Simulated assay, not measured.
Amino acid sequence: MALDELANFVCENASLIHMYRLPNLPLGAEDEQPESIEIKNIFDGTDQQSKSFLKQALTQLEINAFEENTYLAKRYPGLVVLPPLLKDAFRKLNDRVTSLREEFYASVKRGFKNRQSVHENLHKILPNLVLLSAVRNIRYVEQDIDELASVNFYWLSKKMVKHVKHESATEIINDGVAKLRNKDCFGLTNEELLIRQKKELELISRVPKSSSIVEIRYARVQPFIDVWGRNESDSRNTKLLGLNASLPVIMFSMPHQIKQLCNYNYKAPKKINLPVLIHRKHWYVK
């Protein structure tokens, strides 16, 4: 299997494995922001335990649906250093795995509007398979750089802003009611559901055409990684990568400094200073 071949290559040739084991995600965790996240283990070396954890990170596609959350992908923040002479060999193996992932995703997403719909459909057939785990790619530092100055790990709850057209807002409310009628709706009766629909449609109709409707949400907090480097001729460091640390990032030289990932404690996001349109949809008027 291509993924096993890639994982074995990385594990066997790693000069440094620096990774963090996060706690398992409980059932229902996708609907809430955690108050805290405690790092369970830090792996920092090339011993057998570190290599075993690295291989798990690179190859795990399934999770026991009765024990852990299968709507959220397991995160394996960290970095792995490979000898620079192996960069081309790694890239060849990784390109093959990436191509297979893309082929798989293309085959399962046909006929669905978004990734969540794809995941839910796939989940009915393969309940232990997490879509993101199956399609996420291994990232690596592509640039040839004289010095990897620093690698910084940190937690971030990313702000997501989406503009909603007036006519689309009306369709979303109506479609939601059509799907939920004659079903349990978090304690709402059909009559209460229709009352809520009427009220929300009235609120939307009052929004002037000159104003925008925006949906503002904060994603579930996740570990991120920034990689900074410089060439001898540079006067300052350049940001080479900045991304969600869902898998360890592969590098081809030792970083000069690593700012470690610490335990997470919840911090309330900045207040959104816009009039609220529909609170349950996170819609505001701008």
Rank of each mutant, 00 (worst) to 15 (best):
V118Q: 01
L122W: 02
E102T: 08
R91Q: 12
K124P: 00
Q116T: 12
R96G: 03
D95H: 07
S107Y: 06
K92Y: 05
G111H: 08
K109I: 04
G111P: 11
R115W: 00
F112E: 04
F90Y: 09
E102L: 06
R115K: 15
N121C: 09
S107H: 11
N114W: 01
A106S: 15
K109C: 09
S117N: 11
D95N: 14
F104H: 04
A89Q: 11
N114C: 03
K124S: 07
N94Q: 14
Q116W: 11
Y105E: 10
N94G: 03
K109S: 14
H119R: 13
V97L: 13
N94K: 09
E102P: 00
K109N: 15
N114Y: 03
R96S: 09
S107W: 05
T98L: 09
A106L: 07
I125F: 10
F104C: 03
R115D: 06
K124L: 11
T98I: 12
K124C: 01
G111S: 11
S117P: 00
R101N: 13
S117C: 01
K124H: 06
E103M: 08
R96F: 06
Y105H: 13
F104I: 07
V118H: 06
F104Q: 07
N121P: 02
K92F: 08
D95C: 07
D95T: 06
R110N: 12
F112C: 05
E120V: 06
